[in-house]
Simulated scan of single mutants.
Amino acid sequence: MARRVLVVDDEREIRTVLRAYLEADGNVVSEADTGAEALNRILATDGTAPDLVLLDIRLPDLDGLEVLRTLRRTSDVYVILVTARAEEADTLIGLATGADDYITKPFSPREVAARVRTVLRRMRDDAAPPGAAADDHVLRFAGLTLDEQRRELVVDGREIILSTLEFDLLHALAASPGRVFSRAQLLEEVWGYDFYGDERVVDVHIRGVRRALGDDAADPRIIGTVRGVGYKFLLRPEEGR
């Protein structure tokens, strides 16, 4: 099924090039050149809302980060930030706000298309495939259940909502409890391609996961920090999982 992608950028040339590459991949592509127009399209209720948004940070009306903050109040649409700014703070703020990925200008349109394919592969299924065993994709620990197929996380009887990458990051750790992952290993495991950005994006997402879980970094129960190396999942699997 074709996915809908919205390209938000005030430069027509960039929108045109990206549209050509994304349509060549079979996506249905629309465009917006302002933050206000982007919000209208993303929050549309007529069935035309996009599955993924390529969102430029610099827009003529609303800052792209403000657009993202507004979206995250009501929408979990996939968002890839596009920025020409040199400051790393913008990228880290965007990831902390709920962006799924980021790309820095100047970029290769082929790279953008590859990033979009990677994120869209994470599209959430509303139900398990027919015939799939219910427990095939479920990880169970004391007080925590992680269902990969349904993209559901339950902690102490309460469902916890994570962003796409936060869920994938937690699942990567939980699938190998006790194993220490370096940041580079987590980038490869979760992002799924050669990542040329700052490895601190892992730290940003770990903080988001901990915040959602109520896990204290100073005295963790679920995700431990291995100083100078990376992270590990602390809970032990329930018997028979």
Score class of each variant (00 low, 15 high):
Met1Trp: 02
Met1Phe: 05
Arg4Tyr: 05
Arg4His: 14
Val5Leu: 00
Val7Leu: 04
Asp9Thr: 06
Glu11Tyr: 04
Glu11Gly: 09
Arg12Ser: 12
Thr16Met: 07
Leu18Tyr: 10
Tyr21Ala: 08
Glu23Pro: 05
Ala24Trp: 09
Val28Tyr: 02
Ala32Leu: 08
Gly35Tyr: 08
Ala38Ile: 11
Asn40Met: 09
Asn40Lys: 15
Ala44Lys: 03
Ala49Met: 05
Val53His: 03
Leu54Arg: 00
Leu55Ser: 03
Ile57Leu: 15
Arg58Ile: 13
Leu59Cys: 06
Asp61Tyr: 06
Leu62Val: 06
Asp63Asn: 15
Gly64Asn: 06
Leu65Lys: 01
Glu66Gly: 00
Arg73Ile: 11
Ile80Met: 04
Ala84Pro: 03
Arg85Val: 03
Glu87Asn: 05
Glu88Tyr: 03
Leu95Ala: 08
Ala96Gln: 14
Gly98Thr: 12
Ala99Arg: 04
Asp101Gly: 11
Lys105Phe: 14
Ser108Asn: 09
Ser108Cys: 02
Arg110Val: 15
Val112Gly: 10
Val112Phe: 11
Ala113Ser: 15
Thr118Ser: 15
Val119Leu: 15
Met123Lys: 13
Met123Asn: 02
Asp126His: 09
Ala127Cys: 08
Ala127Val: 04
Ala133Lys: 12
Ala134Asp: 01
Asp136Val: 10
Asp136His: 12
Asp136Ala: 15
Arg140Trp: 00
Ala142Ser: 02
Asp147Gly: 02
Arg150His: 13
Gly157Met: 12
Arg158Met: 09
Ile160Glu: 04
Ile161Phe: 08
Leu162Met: 05
Ser163Glu: 13
Glu166Asn: 04
Glu166Phe: 04
Asp168Tyr: 08
Asp168Glu: 13
His171Ile: 04
His171Met: 00
Ala172Pro: 04
Gly178Arg: 03
Arg179Asn: 10
Arg183Pro: 11
Ala184Trp: 00
Ala184Leu: 06
Gln185Phe: 01
Leu187Lys: 05
Glu189Met: 07
Val190Met: 08
Val190Ala: 11
Tyr193Glu: 06
Asp194Met: 14
Tyr196Trp: 10
Glu199Thr: 01
Val202Glu: 08
Val204Tyr: 06
Arg210Thr: 14
Ala212Asn: 04
Asp215Pro: 05
Asp215Arg: 13
Ala217Asp: 09
Ala218Glu: 03
Asp219Gln: 11
Asp219Val: 01
Asp219Met: 06
Pro220Cys: 13
Val226Tyr: 01
Arg227Ser: 12
Gly228Ser: 07
Gly228Asn: 07
Val229Phe: 08
Gly230Pro: 05
Tyr231Met: 12
Tyr231Val: 02
Lys232Tyr: 10
Lys232Leu: 15
Leu234Val: 10
Arg236Trp: 00
Glu238His: 00
